[in-house]
């Protein structure tokens, strides 16, 4: 079990695979599985956006 680097939500490994990108269920941050054994996630790289403004 690891934590979301943004909000601290516990992230379970489940059947995630290395390189998979998924949103944190709480804060929505895009996370990337950087390793499976041991399980580790980081914030996924993202492009800047202006959120429509």
């Amino acid at each position: 079990m690891v934590e979301c680097p943004e909000c601290g939500r516990a992230i379970e490994k489940k059947d995630l695979i290395e390189g998979e990108i998924f949103p944190c269920p709480d804060c929505g941050l895009e996370l990337e599985v950087t390793a499976v054994e041991p399980f580790h996630v980081d914030a996924a790289p993202r492009e800047a956006e202006d959120w429509g403004e």
């Binding site: 709480d26 804060c27 929505g28 941050l29 429509g52």
Partner: peptide, 11 residues
């Protein structure tokens, strides 16, 4: 509900 999200229209 705690709504503080990193992406999407309704952050």
């Amino acid at each position: 509900r705690i709504v503080t999200e990193a992406s999407g229209l309704y952050r």
